[in-house]
Design a binder for these strands. Structure first.
Lengths: 197, 197, 197, 197
DNA sequence: ACCTAAGCGAGACGGTACGTCTCGTCTTGCG
DNA sequence: CGCAAGACGAGACGTACCGTCTCGCTTAGGT
């Protein structure tokens, strides 16, 4: 998190300078940590990173894009277990995700990102793109279960992923990341087994 | 929703002018409907209400406070059908909720409140209270189904409500309120019947 | 020229604050003097005046407008003599103008303004307006001479003024403000008496 | 004026590439013509010439240097008629000059050079040299008239030339190149015949 | 025939200034 | 004393250029 570079970085020719990219991401993280989302401006990041604003805009078209990258760098590795049991796979995924959001800055960053997307169209698009990708990824868990014959063929994997991540998002947004494991298991169980008698 | 006053209101002396307060709330609602959260600034509301900014600041110390009051004024005529079939009940609830959020200011107001709640503690509390209430209320649908013997005894009604409303919130926040009825039925179906083969 | 205010100025309500206007003009003058035209930016003026940029833009729609007002404040009173002799009147006007441009910052300010007008449309218009006014004013000398019967009736006063001020502008722009009185008299003489045998 | 090269130029080794130099000057001229001085940036010229910025900076250390060279390349086919009548000669000169400035890049180039000369010493010197030459040249019209006995002996030809070109410069700088022929004749008439009754 | 030196296009870099926007505060004068 | 009005200092927004830098290439001329 070497945010205060001792020497000015110079151009390294007509190619992206990785040192600048890293300094910017470091600075973004530091600004978010120290000033919170309300103090998070491109100007502040540029100042802190000793970078020009255009350099930031060149590589991150919106505040949201920068936030997403900071978020991804920050986020602790999420478990995508393959236990041969869809219920267990989804539970471990949720538990891992809640833990990461609880214990690292990632949760707050993602909350900021969702808020940002509510009034910035570019942020909304960036977030939608990201969420689509995550749903596809999480959907793989369900696909595997379908291939195993564990889950019915007609089920749409990305829709189940949508359900699971919606549950996670909403708990993040309303400060309920401390649900017990039983609760998480029950939530997953409802989806997997249904609630009918 | 008489937002565009044709005549300037005059002071009524050294007392709060209810007409101004109402005009401000009307204007806030209209602005949220027409320009969304991104266009929702104190300046814009003051302009629309033909009110001075200090008048707004005098009575609502923050954007969040104004949002909360606007949102509480909103009547929500969501259908809570009782068809005797939990799947149909939940589907109609979701369809009605999505429609309301799509076609009235309610959607934008709620989105804005969620966003605001991510950095304003008062808004966060108001939102949490509200969400709790909604879960309890929606949970009644499930309780009825349990009483009917349609749903298993062990199921936690408010958790199912959580799942359903999470799905709705996330779609609101990511601009996916135009899901087809089939999609909504499929989502409800997954919860009610499970996805196992 | 109290440019560095010791105390922050405060709003004085919904009216223009003369203290701010003065501070801005003082700052503009100081910046022009210290950094020259190339260092003259709205940002620099705002910084120096401890004023917000919008405050400057509110009252001076362009850099040129600000330059014009600074110029007008600066310029030493130009002599508009009324000797009863058009030749003498014009000569004294020119001598006075050249002197003012030579001995005060006014010359440099006006040069800056003309340069600015070459790439800023707003500046061009402001300059054109100003020049039109000056021509009309200077034209009065000729009008008086016409009324006296000294000058032919068909002569267009503003065109003669145009000729005289063109002569002055060009000498300003090419660094020839040190013309001898004889030269000035000869120039005026050519216009007034013609050059024919 | 083959400004839009269809093919990329190739390097010709470790020597200045005349094709690039020419393309840059062509581009500079085209940019000045189309966008005027305000659109005249090194970036714009480089873009238009498909040249790298360092290539321009290598050979022309400043905007002024580039301007001067562009301006010197400009051929000026100004009419120096010899009708045997000084008034007609000067009128045709002015009309021709105004037309050239209006219809070719020359006007914008010259305007730009004058503007640039207000803060760049090299440009100022180049401009002063040029102006001196032009005055001498235009003065020849007056000399001829003196020789013909049409104009008084004591008149300084270069001063009359100064007057005439000042009139032209000022009209160029204030966007008044569309003066009617009557106005031009009146201006010339004032100088030649005087304005006295 | 190889090697080196320099010019070339491209474009990223840290900066500065642009003109616009909204923030929350302040003061006026009317009612 | 509340109100509409709107000016104020502050500072972020996203864009345009500035002048510098480095890259990878191309080719001429010296060896």
């Amino acid at each position: 998190m070497n945010a205060t570079e001792e020497k000015a970085r110079r151009s390294i020719g007509a190619r992206r300078n990785p040192a600048s990219a890293e300094a910017i991401l470091d600075a973004a993280e530091a600004v978010l940590h120290e000033a919170g989302y309300s103090g998070f401006s491109i100007e502040a990041v540029a100042r802190r990173a000793r970078a020009g604003k255009p350099t930031i805009y060149r590589w991150w078209p919106s505040k949201a894009a920068l936030l997403i990258e900071v978020y991804q760098r920050q986020k602790r590795d999420i478990v995508y277990a393959d236990t041969g049991n869809i219920e267990e796979d989804l539970f471990q995924f949720l538990r891992s995700l809640f833990g990461s959001w609880r214990d690292t800055p990632a949760g707050n960053i993602f909350r900021s990102l969702i808020a940002e997307a509510q009034f910035d169209a570019a942020a909304a698009e960036a977030l939608a793109d990201y969420a689509r990708g995550r749903r596809a990824y999480t959907g793989k868990l369900v696909e595997r279960a379908i291939d195993r014959g564990e889950v019915a063929r007609g089920v749409d994997p990305s829709q189940i992923a949508d359900m699971v991540s919606s549950y996670a998002w909403t708990h993040l947004l309303t400060g309920r990341l401390d649900e017990s494991e039983d609760k998480l298991r029950a939530a997953v169980g409802a989806i997997v087994n249904g609630i009918k008698v």
